[in-house]
Design a protein around this nucleic acid. Structure first.
Length: 950
DNA sequence: CGAGATGTGCTTTTT
DNA sequence: GCACATCTCG
């Protein structure tokens, strides 16, 4: 067992007071923390129940516990209930013990209960939110404007989660504590930002325009602002002006946001109520309710505080977690351990400022919490910084390179203003590694995948890459390939398998995009509503041709064996048991199948989660390419392929940092929701609904566009990500890039090694999905393109339609239900008109009719597949009626393509009848007959789609 | 050389 | 929808 070094010793022995520990990679962080913990309970004789140790993952908590047991005098039993765990599990325990009524402090008339379930699956959280949102839209017509504005409820969910992580919390009739002002933004910080950004730059011949003015160059380009919005000219001034007149900026900042704040308030409170009503809590809710409980009930807080609190991976904490930790402090004995350079979880609401501005925030948060009465007593304790400076993992050259990465520009145009200031913040590490002469190489090759594989073959068994202090040549198991993205890892995995290189993929996969998951989904659909898509897929899998499937669907007489299996499935009550039967029937027994069953088992326990919900979950999973972990089985020593994020905390003798290409480091734009929250500018809407020609149109908000020009993206986290990746290497490091290397690859001081891949280019069998869901080789057979794909989407962008996708979906669902006789009464104007239309039709009506159109495109045969909204049959003719809920008719030429597909299908299957394609604009109550395109014209449009997809 | 306009290529990470 | 790179003009 190693002896602690001087700094480690200092920390282990220092128990009282506040400690900020900068623990870079490989500095023995876990070792030191566990020793310190042991020292507190052994040397001080403190009971473990008085020492709180917070970690980020359950795995980390387990590891800490194990290591502590090894090192201290207490036995397993004494430590079994020790408070060592994640923030979330701690909050959960606190609430269950003392805080079941916590929501009441917010004026919410409901309780958490002993059986309340925690939603752990992000997909389930989304599904639940979607359901909630649908109800909210119905129940809150006063917020119609915002419902029209939003394209995707998920962006709102992420705003709510962001607010929760910041401790911005609503009450039934207002906002909790300082929440309201936080929504307003930070005027001081924003003005400082503008001041900085609007300073003229220094050119060769004197002052040039400020960054802010430059950012506003494209203001209003490609967007439609309200008529009263200022033009780029007005904001930026004459050519040659160096600064922006900030009057406009201030006007934008001071925008009236009362109704927006009210909307978010109502939504937020309703969401909390919905969750409590359904007896569930999300991770975010756990934390805000625990926070409220600790703030409001002094007796409870006092009863659950600790003499000592230690927090691991402090750079990953969010604002509310910092505050929670303070509230749990009885004595001013706080020890936070982390490394700002490894903060790579901002998307998970980690706030790197917690560690970089620790002292300021500590003071600020304590003041905030003590504003009305004393809750946290730090006794004026000062903060002691303890940097751990010795790295036991990597050679100096690798450490230096990683530190270089922190000041390397991420793009050609980015300039690191003050590299020296960043350098000063870095606690530079000194290597203790035995490996004195590491190989550090950069390899660039057009065929990067082959180059990586070839490089691995070159490294294995190579004395130049000797490891373990130069004592032995490396094997496959000593090498890890790290990538920024999943997709690169998956491709590399496939190609490596192809050439017989032992690899194990250590990340998540798109679980729902597998044949296994699709079959499960298909059968669940069949079980639930005898769904055509379900049958189609099952039949396709059973070997039926498209034509045969078509026929079977029409006559609805399916093969006996399949019908029997369907009956068998009906015997099961639990969705995971159904999934298991399905997978067994098809002989799927691998880790993918296991993961599917595990996932379904974990989600079916959510209260009132029906089979329909499971179906929606799987559908969403395919649609949005959700990934889930699959336990790989590594039988032999194999090269590990991982994302950087998942490799955090690990180490490998040899690291290949691959995929250092421009596209792999996405730019900082934080997603495209129409409502956003930023600490500096507060809660904002990026679009607005305005009435033009008496019709609602969705317009870009000029105020947001203006403010946004000041909120420049930063690449700090990308640099830190690279830092994390490089510091995983114990002995050697190889950087690789394809034909478009990113700036990091270009600028890092690594010798570019000439390298010709010895591996033949592998032509991965490219596959595409058929419309039914199975994968087929790209060059053959039917290929799924929907009529929608033929449409030029830019038409829809040009004239943004303000009525909302949700409305469209609702109206379509209603129409289908109405035709099938299961409908309720219409709930809006569009539906009323549809009812009038449908009731006025003589003859038969059919809704959501699936159609297939085989089409020859170039030398390939593709199949278009879609659903007709409404088929209206009379003796002599068939009307194809397609509903559009848009407020505009400008997309008519695009809709014509879609209807033409339907036309040709019907034309073929119903040769005796006249086929009439009709567009029905529900908003305008306008019916329009369409002149169909020819097959050749359709094929031409399809050609564009096919060729653009490669 | 700087400013503005135009064209291109992508859209991730997961406790 | 966005940021970057490149082109063109003054």
């Amino acid at each position: 067992m190693p002896e602690p070094n001087e700094r480690q010793r200092e920390l282990i022995d220092a128990h009282e007071g506040i400690y900020l520990v900068d623990a870079g990679p490989g500095t023995g962080k876990t070792f030191t923390i566990t020793r310190r913990y042991a020292s507190i309970i052994d040397d001080r004789g403190i009971d473990p129940s008085g020492v709180l140790l917070l970690t980020f993952t359950n795995a980390a908590a387990d590891e800490m516990t194990d290591r502590i047991i090894e090192h201290c005098d207490r036995d397993l039993v004494e430590l079994a209930d020790a408070p060592i765990g994640t923030f979330h599990s701690r909050c959960n325990e606190l609430l269950r013990r003392d805080g079941l009524d916590a929501p009441r402090h917010l004026g919410i008339e409901d309780d958490i209960t002993a059986t309340t379930q925690i939603v752990e699956d992000a997909g389930v959280e989304r599904l639940l939110f979607e359901e909630f949102y649908g109800r909210f839209v119905n129940d809150h017509p006063q917020h119609a404007e915002y419902h029209q504005l939003l394209r995707d409820p998920m962006t709102i969910l992420s705003v709510l989660n962001q607010l929760m992580a910041k401790g911005i919390i609503p009450t039934n009739d207002g906002w909790y504590r300082d929440s309201r002002s936080a929504l307003q933004g930070d005027r001081v910080a924003f003005d400082a930002l503008i001041g900085e950004l609007n300073r003229p730059n220094q050119g060769a011949n004197g002052a040039t325009q400020s960054d802010l003015r430059s950012n506003l160059a494209g203001f209003g380009r490609d967007r439609r602002h309200a008529p009263e919005a200022p033009s780029a000219q007005e904001i930026r001034g004459e050519r040659g002006t160096t600064q922006v007149d900030v009057t406009w900026v201030h006007q934008a900042f001071n925008e009236d946001r009362e109704s927006l704040v009210e909307y978010i308030h109502d939504l937020y409170v309703s969401y909390l109520e919905y969750a409590l009503g359904r007896n569930i809590l999300t991770f975010g809710m756990l934390q805000i309710f625990a926070f409220v409980m600790l703030c409001e009930d002094d007796a409870i807080r006092t009863a659950c505080t600790f003499d000592y609190v230690m927090i691991d991976e402090f750079q990953d904490t969010s604002e509310i977690q910092f505050k929670l930790a303070l509230l749990l402090l009885d004595q001013p004995n706080l020890c936070v351990v982390g490394d700002w350079k490894q903060s790579i979880y901002a998307f998970q609401y980690a706030d790197v400022g917690n560690i970089t501005e620790f002292e300021d925030r500590l003071q600020q948060f304590v003041d905030e919490l003590n504003r009305d009465r004393n809750r946290v007593d730090l006794d004026g304790a000062s903060v002691t910084s303890i940097p751990l400076e010795v790295n036991y993992r990597s050679p100096q050259a690798i450490i230096d390179l990683a530190e270089d990465a922190l000041t390397t520009p991420a793009t050609g145009s980015e300039s690191i203003e003050d590299a020296a200031a960043i350098r000063r913040q870095i606690v530079s590490l000194t290597a203790e590694s035995a490996q004195a002469a590491p190989q550090i190489e950069a390899v660039q090759a057009e065929a990067e995948l082959e180059a990586v594989i070839s490089k691995i073959q070159h490294i294995v068994g190579n004395e130049h890459f000797a490891i373990d202090g130069g004592t032995r040549p490396p094997t496959y198991g000593d090498i890890a390939v790290l990538s920024r993205t999943h997709s690169f890892g998956r491709e590399l995995h496939a190609v490596a398998k192809n050439v017989g290189l032992p690899v194990v993929y250590g990340g998540d996969i798109e679980l729902f995009d597998t044949d296994e998951a699709k079959l499960v989904l298909a059968w669940l659909r069949i079980l639930s509503y005898d769904d055509d898509r379900g049958w189609a897929l099952v039949l396709e899998q059973a070997g039926y041709t498209v034509d045969a499937i078509d026929q079977l669907l029409k006559t609805r007489s399916f093969p006996m064996a399949l019908e029997r299996f369907k009956e068998e499935l009906k015997e099961h009550h639990r969705s995971d048991a159904i999934a298991r039967s399905i997978l067994e029937r098809y002989g799927f027994g691998g880790e993918v199948a296991d993961s599917i069953i595990t996932t379904i088992r974990s989600i079916r326990t959510i209260n009132d989660f029906t089979l329909g919900d499971v179906i929606r979950y799987l559908e969403r999973g395919i649609d949005q390419r959700w990934t889930r972990s699959v336990d790989g089985v590594d039988t032999e020593p194999a090269v590990t392929i991982q994302t950087i994020h998942s490799a955090k905390g690990l180490e490998f003798p040899i690291v290949i940092m691959a995929n250092m290409n421009r596209h792999a480091f996405p730019s900082g734009g934080r997603g495209g929701g129409r409502i956003r929250f930023d600490e500096r500018v507060g809660l904002r809407q990026t679009h607005e609904i305005a009435s033009i020609d008496d019709r609602p149109h969705r317009l870009a908000s000029w105020r947001w566009d203006l403010l946004n020009a000041a909120l420049m993206p930063t690449y700090d986290e990308e640099r830190r990500l690279l830092y994390v990746a490089l510091t995983r290497a114990k002995d050697h490091l190889v950087l690789t890039a394809g034909d478009n290397p990113n700036q990091f690859f270009e600028e890092l001081p690594v010798e570019l090694v000439e390298f010709e891949p010895a591996v033949e280019p592998v032509d991965l069998e490219r596959t595409v999905q058929t419309h039914l869901g199975f994968e087929v080789p790209a060059q053959l057979g039917p290929r799924g393109i929907s009529p929608h794909d033929l449409m030029d989407q830019s038409v829809f962008d040009d004239v943004e339609d303000g009525r909302g996708v949700a409305l469209g979906r609702e109206v379509h669902d209603f129409a289908e239900a109405y035709v099938n006789g299961t409908a309720k009464t219409p709930s809006n104007e569009d539906e009323h008109r549809l009812v009038t239309l449908i009731d006025g039709l003589d003859g038969e009506c059919e809704a959501e009719v699936p159609v297939y159109l085989p089409l020859t495109v170039g030398d390939r045969q593709i199949t278009l597949f879609g659903y007709v909204d409404l088929l209206h049959r009379t003796e002599e003719r068939i009307e194809i009626i397609d509903f559009k809920t848009d407020a505009t008719t400008i997309a008519q030429p695009e809709y014509r393509k879609q209807l033409s597909v339907y036309y040709h299908v019907l034309e073929e299957t119903e040769p005796d009848k006249e086929i009439v394609p009709v567009l029905y604009y529900t908003y305008l109550d306008q019916r329009e007959q369409i002149n169909p395109l020819s097959r050749a014209e359709l094929a031409e449009h399809a050609m564009k789609v096919v060729s653009s997809e490669g």
